[in-house]
Design a protein around this nucleic acid. Structure first.
Lengths: 331, 331
DNA sequence: ACTTCCTTCGAAACCGGTTTATTTAATTAT
DNA sequence: ATAATTAAATAAACCGGTTTCGAAGGAAGT
């Protein structure tokens, strides 16, 4: 690897002078500058980021924490949005794997991992509301951080999320507009803020529109087809039947599967409306409340860059959008 | 951030002693060691990876290059396999974004970016066969690298891929077993090795089984539903019709869409067999030749670790597997 | 011709670690 | 008691950069 010393030697100048050329600082004569640039070019030289970040404390690296986000339909798209914005600004992305730290030795967590790698900021995603104490030290630290879908704020922390409550209201209002009154809801993990918010929105609309609320129509589990499938099977056995199901996309798809297996159909026998708008849902022509996943990633990135520059810390709430597919009908 | 100097000061020893404790080197008395460890723990201290990698040349970071792999169904799963193995071994993943380099200034490419970030090795994926000259400098460098689906070897380079030729043969043989003789093939990007290999396997089987080959049944495009959709529309207009279609999953799904739009059905009117086994295909109950995406990521990671340790450089070819769904029928 | 003021450049310290070589202290051998 | 050996600890150099500060040299002012 060619270093700044090699360049200095070849150009017969000091490394400080080379450094000034690299950073385009003043105080270097035109001739010298040109000579150094020429030698840099000839040797394919580029200053080593690691060494540089050691002294500048700026690494042009953004850390990403998220358990199992790579095999998650939703977060993969968010990741894409992050890449777009961060790549544009010259940042690379450091994905922290879930390596086994010897927790007994030292309380080594998000904050320490970020400091350890000198990341300029970090995006946190895929975390629930439970056990948020684990983020305490990060929130109190100097490290700029943005949470996705978890409303945490701190000295250098903010968050980005979709308008989950409003989105859920939209879903209920749409179903109501189609004439549905008896609406079931199957939601994902109870400890996750997003699902709680959607449940709140659901209840708000039920109340506002004066629709019946039946606790037997409420289910939760995880964000899987299996949850939808099993919950729908339970619904199918109920005496008092709902006419519509509201559930996150993957869950909704599982529900549709159960409905079809029972010899019934969507939207003839049940209307189903999803939430998320993941790619798979489109193949089912699922009517759904769409989030803007890529937009979430982009917004999180822009917010993080703003925090890094100490310009703005305001949380961002993105609107949702009703996408009419073929899984709801008028009754 | 607490540094080695802070610890040294608090423990009243030199930083070299602390370093020896950190690395568990000999030459430190038991009492001293214990004292230093205690102070490290009390201060949540962990040695800074950046500084460390500057002197050791080992960063515990693996670079990942891949244009647009995040919005690609296939590579996202490969990524998951990489995370599993690398995370286990204590490596984090550095995803290189496609920032705009000023190419006019210096020939700054894969090799330089890797050196620049001190990555211990790099996994390259999503590249075609065309323009492989861009990898020349990387192949000749010291940087351990593994290509996925591109058969490049070098002083510290090897590759991992699926048995695409054999997989394609399996597809044709299966269709032939079901009685199909007229088989169309729609394949992805012409410049990509994987598609070329699959085409070779296809032709081998056609010849071996003495089936008719019709160049009008051969299409290429990219790895998209649109390619499948458009190609299938052309097939539907052909005078001499094939009875089966072989295409990569996403393309196959596009073809199925075109078939259904034409008022026909799968497998009644056409049998369709895919290649890849991406998650979406499962929702279509697609019969397909499955690759092991996660296995590819795992194999690439293990191979890379072997190259880093200078233990083994042999390319790895993973077998494929026929998954029988509901899109092929006997005729 | 002498001071003053820029401009250009390099020496040295620094970032937070590792590593080599050397000093210091304690132990063993003679 | 002295020399030789060993173990423990540190000083200093190093990794590849940045940054501060002072020196050297030339131009301008008087």
């Amino acid at each position: 690897m060619v270093t700044i010393n090699d360049i200095a030697k070849k150009a017969k100048v000091s490394k400080s002078t080379v450094s000034k050329v690299i950073n385009n600082y003043a105080g270097v004569g035109d001739d010298t500058k040109e000579k150094v640039l020429k030698i840099m070019k000839e040797n394919n030289y580029w200053p080593n980021s690691v060494a540089r970040s050691l002294s500048t404390k700026k690494s042009y690296t953004i850390g990403i924490f998220g358990p199992q986000i790579l095999n998650n339909f939703f977060f993969r798209e968010v990741f894409e949005g992050i890449e777009a914005v961060m790549g544009d600004k010259g940042y690379d992305l450091l994905y922290f794997t879930n390596k086994q730290w010897d927790e007994s030795w030292v309380d080594y967590s998000y904050k320490e991992k970020c400091e350890n790698r000198n990341v300029d900021g970090v995006i946190m995603m895929g975390y629930g509301k439970v056990n948020i104490a684990q983020f305490d030290r990060l929130l109190k630290s100097e490290i700029p951080s943005v949470f996705i879908d978890l409303d945490l704020v701190g000295s250098n922390t903010s968050y980005v999320t979709s308008d989950n409550t409003g989105g859920a209201r939209k879903a209920v209002e749409y179903l109501a507009k189609l004439g549905h009154k008896k609406i079931a809801m199957i939601r994902g993990l109870n400890g996750f803020k997003v699902s709680t918010d959607r449940f709140v929105g659901f209840q708000q609309s039920i109340k506002a529109l004066n629709l019946p609320y039946n606790s037997k129509w409420m289910f939760d589990g995880d964000y899987s087809m299996e949850t939808g499938y099993q919950s729908m099977k339970k619904i199918l056995r109920l005496e008092e039947q709902p006419t519509a199901i509201f559930a996150e996309d993957l869950i909704a798809i599982g529900a549709i599967k159960a409905i079809r297996e029972a010899g019934l159909n969507v939207p003839e026998d049940y209307s189903v409306i999803g939430f998320d708008s993941i790619e798979v849902g489109r193949h089912y022509h699922l009517t759904t409340i769409a989030q803007d996943q890529i937009g979430l990633g982009e917004a999180a990135s822009k917010l993080l860059l703003n925090i890094i520059d100490q310009k703005s810390f305001s949380p961002i709430i993105l609107p949702t959008r009703l996408i009419i597919g073929e899984t709801c009908r008028e009754i």
